[in-house]
Lab assay of single mutants.
Amino acid sequence: EPLWIRPDAPSRCTWQLGRPASESPHHHTAPAKSPKILPDILKKIGDTPMVRINKIGKKFGLKCELLAKCEFFNAGGSVKDRISLRMIEDAERDGTLKPGDTIIEPTSGNTGIGLALAAAVRGYRCIIVMPEKMSSEKVDVLRALGAEIVRTPTNARFDSPESHVGVAWRLKNEIPNSHILDQYRNASNPLAHYDTTADEILQQCDGKLDMLVASVGTGGTITGIARKLKEKCPGCRIIGVDPEGSILAEPEELNQTEQTTYEVEGIGYDFIPTVLDRTVVDKWFKSNDEEAFTFARMLIAQEGLLCGGSAGSTVAVAVKAAQELQEGQRCVVILPDSVRNYMTKFLSDRWMLQKGFLKEEDLTEKKPWWWHLRVQELGLSAPLTVLPTITCGHTIEILREKGFDQAPVVDEAGVILGMVTLGNMLSSLLAGKVQPSDQVGKVIYKQFKQIRLTDTLGRLSHILEMDHFALVVHEQIQYHSTGKSSQRQMVFGVVTAIDLLNFVAAQERDQK
């Protein structure tokens, strides 16, 4: 057995438009009618409502009807409940999964919650491996369901041993009777949507819809739904939504950006999952974080739909894509998950301010006199920076000697690579993860907040409520011999709460 199987392995699926269902090699399930009293909570997966979006479509000038398939009504709160249950049931049916076995899954959280929910009911041990950027709410729900959680670096490539995929496979090879159901490759993922989600949409719309818009992560949702719609409703256009920084969209030119990270969760990847059939997507749109969270908040405030950030991405694209539809036509959007997962993220004004998705003037509360002053007023001194090749031991000596707790790590040209902190280095040394002679590049981390000289002290204040420091950066445009230009970030300084307090105190003292 291989040590790991690539999540982007070539698909062996034989589905073709027009091929009889009787030739399918898979076990198919028909939607079942729910009894009045459910035998367990797993029976509350599927049969989610279709809700008309009344205000947002009109606000953006849509002539067509805009409908939302509300997947956050599933038992675990997301569309991923469907595939989690289906993968477990299919693994039980073919004898792969037996009582007492362990389920391991690399996930952005929602599939993990679905699997942990099913594992709690069915009696399996469950280990979820997820990147650090995923919300604390997801972690809390997983723990409450009895799952064990392993976190991995957000910026690790999918084929790196440190990625959530790599760590999951390492655990599988170490733990007896453990299984990775593997949402990236498992046919049960798109089949769950082909058999149930798509049929529900067709039934709820009486077979009449002209466009379907869905955000894409593993691709199982859009693949399964689109294949069924292509068979039953061939005139329906399928629109895929991919965040900026991901590479799922086609044509490839759409993916060209210097951005590699994004805040919206559960969609987009740096590889093409095996289950994603991009041939059934008629057109791709890219979405960005700001519009995703703005539209998610709009869905909550104006439509009462308590959905997550990827739902915002989907609707932001839908109001663009559906401009081509006329009166009497219908566009369906998939709202994948609930706001429950993001209470401390985009639902929080403070978080939105820190990330730059909300401006101070958007909030009406009274601010102190210094709130709208610029960061450049602080008069920061030149920063202490270190090269990635310097040793951890030497870096600790320098920081202690100069009285700093942290320093930016830059390359020879001064471009920011990340940050090192005294606390992080000492804990890594004590844990045996690094040696004093190791290069400081081994303990770089990139989960820090950046701020510009033109940003306000109010925004800085919000950042420092949650973080010990902020890195002050400025952009530099560099022209190359080819005539092309590129933008790079340079370090201007490091600012802490002490710097802000000293500035405010000094100004008030001078005024007296």
Rank of each mutant, 00 (worst) to 15 (best):
K402D: 11
I272R: 09
G458K: 07
E252N: 14
V317R: 07
A470V: 15
V281S: 07
V280R: 13
Q323G: 11
Q256I: 12
E324A: 10
E303T: 13
T391W: 03
T344L: 05
K433L: 14
L353I: 14
T314C: 06
E508K: 15
I463M: 15
R488M: 15
K512S: 14
K446G: 07
V386K: 06
I390K: 02
Q406H: 09
K446W: 14
E377W: 07
G266C: 01
V440N: 12
G414M: 01
C307D: 03
H480F: 14
D510R: 10
P251R: 05
V241D: 06
S246A: 05
M352F: 04
A311G: 11
I398K: 11
F346D: 05
R374N: 14
L335H: 00
Y269E: 05
L501V: 12
A316P: 14
L417I: 12
D270C: 05
Y262F: 13
V275R: 00
G240Y: 00
L306Q: 06
T314V: 13
E327V: 06
T314K: 11
V420W: 00
S428I: 13
I477M: 14
S486W: 08
L254S: 04
D289G: 00
D337F: 03
G493M: 03
A497V: 13
D277G: 10
G240F: 03
A413R: 13
L417E: 06
A301T: 09
K402I: 08
Q478C: 14
G483Q: 14
N288Q: 15
D510M: 10
M419D: 12
L417D: 09
D438P: 09
L453D: 03
G240V: 09
G268P: 00
R374T: 11
T456L: 13
D455V: 12
G268F: 00
Q450A: 10
V473R: 10
F271N: 00
D438C: 09
Q450F: 14
V491Y: 08
Q256W: 14
I390N: 14
E324C: 03
K345V: 03
V409W: 00
D455F: 05
K484W: 13
S486C: 15
Y262H: 02
E290L: 13
E361N: 10
V495F: 14
L363H: 12
E361T: 15
E324W: 07
L373R: 08
V332F: 01
S310E: 05
